[in-house]
Amino acid sequence: MHPMVRILALVAFILPAAGTMPAFAAPPTDACSLLTAAEVSSSLGSPVAKGTYDMPGFTKTCTWTIPTGGAVTLQLQTLDFFNAGKGALASSERTSASGVGDEAYYLVMGSLDVRKGSTAFKVSVYTSEFGMDQRKAIEKSIAQRVLAKL
């Protein structure tokens, strides 16, 4: 068999197999790229300003300001940080959240922490306009929008 034919046969065999290998994407590093103001507004039920970084050059936290007061924040986390919150806090300080990512919990202090694969993030709604249950529903809606992009 001609050497070129052998190479082509090998390539034809290897390429399809390579396409079936799982892809391991790196966790995202830009929180503002995961949500638009329109998406946050839709979940919140009121308009928000365009997302901004809390500190210049630090892209793992993005905040959308609510004109009537308050804000929505998305913070990208490490798995260690997610697991620390899950394990270090008493059960009275956190409650499980079902139907969100691979694992999620609400913190009494006001956030929804979510893990999907090797990616973790926290969504927080800071406003006095909503009660606890409504805030949790909004955080869950926003988290589901983020998860759809991961």
Score class of each variant (00 low, 15 high):
residue 60 K to I: 03
residue 85 G to A: 07
residue 52 T to R: 10
residue 140 K to W: 00
residue 135 R to K: 12
residue 149 K to W: 06
residue 15 L to G: 08
residue 132 M to H: 07
residue 70 G to P: 09
residue 3 P to S: 12
residue 76 L to G: 01
residue 75 Q to N: 14
residue 98 S to C: 01
residue 99 G to M: 06
residue 31 A to Y: 00
residue 8 L to T: 11
residue 11 V to Q: 10
residue 138 I to N: 01
residue 129 E to C: 05
residue 89 L to K: 13
residue 19 G to Y: 09
residue 98 S to T: 11
residue 58 F to E: 13
residue 107 L to N: 06
residue 103 E to I: 01
residue 138 I to Y: 02
residue 1 M to K: 03
residue 125 V to C: 06
residue 79 L to D: 11
residue 65 T to F: 10
residue 71 A to S: 13
residue 73 T to H: 06
residue 79 L to S: 10
residue 118 S to W: 01
residue 72 V to Y: 07
residue 72 V to D: 07
residue 117 G to K: 10
residue 103 E to C: 00
residue 27 P to F: 06
residue 78 T to A: 05
residue 69 G to I: 11
residue 7 I to S: 11
residue 108 V to L: 14
residue 107 L to T: 13
residue 82 F to S: 06
residue 150 L to I: 14
residue 127 T to K: 13
residue 17 A to R: 13
residue 145 R to F: 09
residue 102 D to Q: 11
residue 123 V to N: 04
residue 2 H to Q: 15
residue 10 L to V: 13
residue 43 S to D: 08
residue 70 G to F: 11
residue 82 F to Q: 01
residue 43 S to M: 12
residue 11 V to H: 13
residue 53 Y to G: 10
residue 129 E to F: 15
residue 35 L to E: 00
residue 94 R to Y: 04
residue 101 G to W: 02
residue 43 S to Y: 06
residue 80 D to F: 09
residue 92 S to G: 02
residue 34 L to I: 02
residue 140 K to E: 08
residue 31 A to S: 08
residue 100 V to E: 00
residue 23 A to P: 00
residue 72 V to H: 11
residue 53 Y to S: 09
residue 104 A to R: 00
residue 49 A to P: 03
residue 122 K to G: 05
residue 30 D to I: 00
residue 110 G to R: 12
residue 12 A to C: 14
residue 148 A to L: 05
residue 8 L to F: 14
residue 1 M to G: 15
residue 145 R to A: 14
